[in-house]
Design a protein around this nucleic acid. Structure first.
Lengths: 186, 186
DNA sequence: TGCGCCATGTAACATGTTACATGATTAT
DNA sequence: ATAATCATGTAACATGTTACATGGCGCA
């Protein structure tokens, strides 16, 4: 897709500054995006030049000026078109799986450590994700349907983490059933 | 990580040509990678220049010459080091979730279509994934432990698809519980 | 006759990441 | 003192994708 539509979507919800968008991207897992300056500010400029967003410069005392971007009708049309586009396949790239595939040259202890590290990372992410809750909280939704959609988006991530944890526990069990010939190595 | 380690891993299993690697990447979901010429051939050249792989040129009648790459001891050391590295978080970017988040401006029929399309895509991927089975079949594994690891890698994807399907069915149920005010729109 | 497979590679482009730069304010 | 927050932006680099180029063979 590109950040374009992610940004247009957020602006269709409410006017925001580049800084806000950057924060949303970097803080939320649901809307994963790197949230780096380069992309956000450049994309906003593009959208502005193409008339998909408008902006208002707000001077603040003791703080740098803000540029608040608002979606235009033209922007809403483009967004709506994209929404009716057939979705891309989710991009899932897990380098841990590549590590696992070739991990047979590790000792039992090393492999165990690898699994522990992955499990811990996922567990942490899951906790954080649940702790901060949906970054689009239901109370801000503009309709009951939107509330359902937002909650589903949030649950999607949660389910993913959960599935990973179950999967790794299964793997541990499978590995435990092996005769342990290499205790010495670790 | 980079394709580097994915390639080193495959070569630690058996000698392969660039063309083979390209095919493996593009055909398998487990080892997702774009499998484009540019990266594969360039990376192989890099690895070669750094002494992590060796190559042998094989002339074939009526077919273009092949360059078969073999991992070196130096390459195995680098691979082993990487395997003991703490795993990166899985990268999951699902633009469909972004579509969903802003889909409240769609009619009930349009939203339904969007869900159908996503479900179909996931279902297809899942079928293909199961049909072709693990691209690293257990019979080629060099130890019982490796067979377990490979099977786990394959199952990971399968579980992901399954979870997505369950999730979307839940979402459908949640949406169905809404009063249908916009039948007219569709 | 045209397409797809084998097998290599390059060029142009799109996207993403890290680090740098400014500069005041507030919190530790 | 030092770092983090607010707020904008640029430069350099890393990575990924698409399309092009070559050229014979086999299949429909």
């Amino acid at each position: 897709m590109s950040v374009r539509h992610a940004i247009l979507g957020l602006l269709s919800w409410q006017p925001l500054a580049g800084y806000d968008l950057k924060k949303i991207f970097s803080e939320s897992a649901d809307f994963y995006w790197s949230g780096n300056n380069n992309q956000v500010y450049r994309t906003l400029l593009d959208l502005f030049e193409q008339g998909l967003v408008e902006r208002e410069i707000i001077q603040q005392e003791n703080l740098p000026a803000k540029k608040i971007y608002t979606i235009t009708d033209k922007g809403r049309v483009e967004l709506r078109q994209w929404l009716n586009t057939t979705p891309e396949l989710p991009l899932l790239r897990n380098s841990f799986l590549v590590q696992l595939a070739w991990a047979d040259c590790l000792s039992a202890a090393e492999l165990d450590q690898l699994l522990n590290r992955y499990e811990e990372e996922i567990r942490d992410q899951n906790l954080m994700h649940n702790a901060r809750g949906p970054q689009l909280p239901a109370k801000n939704a503009r309709s009951p349907r939107e509330a359902i959609l937002w909650s589903a988006v949030h649950q999607n991530r949660a389910k993913f983490y959960q599935t990973e944890l179950e999967w790794i526990q299964n793997l541990r069990m499978d590995l435990a059933s092996l005769p342990e010939k290499d205790e010495l190595k670790g």
